[in-house]
Amino acid sequence: MNVAITLFPGTNCDTDTQYAFEKLGHKATILWHKERTIPANTDLVVIAGGFSYGDYLRSGAIARFSPIVEGVIAHANKGGKVLGICNGFQILTEARLLPGALKRNEHLHFISKHQHVRVENNQNDFLRLLKVGDVLNLPIAHADGNYYADAQTIAQMEQKGQVLLRYSDASGAISNPNGSVGAIAGICNETKNVFGLMPHPERAIEILLGSDDGIKMLQGFASL
């Protein structure tokens, strides 16, 4: 599959994401933020993690005005697949491609560690290779990962199968590292082509580094 990875000023997971997709056998290219369109043959756009524009305002609030986001929105509106990881998730909520918002962690600190997440829904391209209830071990590294949406929105998302991942412990019991409502770690849009999560699946593709639980997530986007 052809993966296009966005590079904003301050993005710092672009090469990690490229490395991961290439290691899994895909073609991954970097897209500069001043571009306005997504290459036509793109199967998946990844908004990689980092600190776009330093996150000096609200995380993702400036990046969403970048020319490339116009392209991402057009790609998504045509049904193209988009995955936002960490800062990418924040940018997608700021761009209103995903519902809700990501607030400062409840304990106010940046948090970096391996964190378990539980699969809530696999009826989508992202998690189709996993089973509901599977527990994955993924790195998290964020200051603004506290997912919030109002109760009505959450209820709609639950009903439409948009809540994809919740933070848990190794046994699958809920364990919330940042205060997210419902311990939500990852979601998708109503049409299930735009995905966002705070954990870093691209950092979990090698046992040498502690986990390869991210492989089945990234490979889900590859055509059957």
């Binding site: 997971c13 090469t15 990690d16 490395y19 993690g49 600190h109 948090i111 970096s112 590294a141 950092r203």
Partner: peptide, 28 residues
């Protein structure tokens, strides 16, 4: 202390904070 530092970006960290003694990264 060390959970406030991103210890895993660049995807090379074999031994990070809290693992005792020296820290280790892989060289791709």
């Amino acid at each position: 202390i060390y959970t406030q530092y991103d210890s895993m970006v660049q995807t090379n960290t074999i031994k990070g904070g809290g693992s005792l003694d020296a820290s280790v990264i892989r060289v791709k």
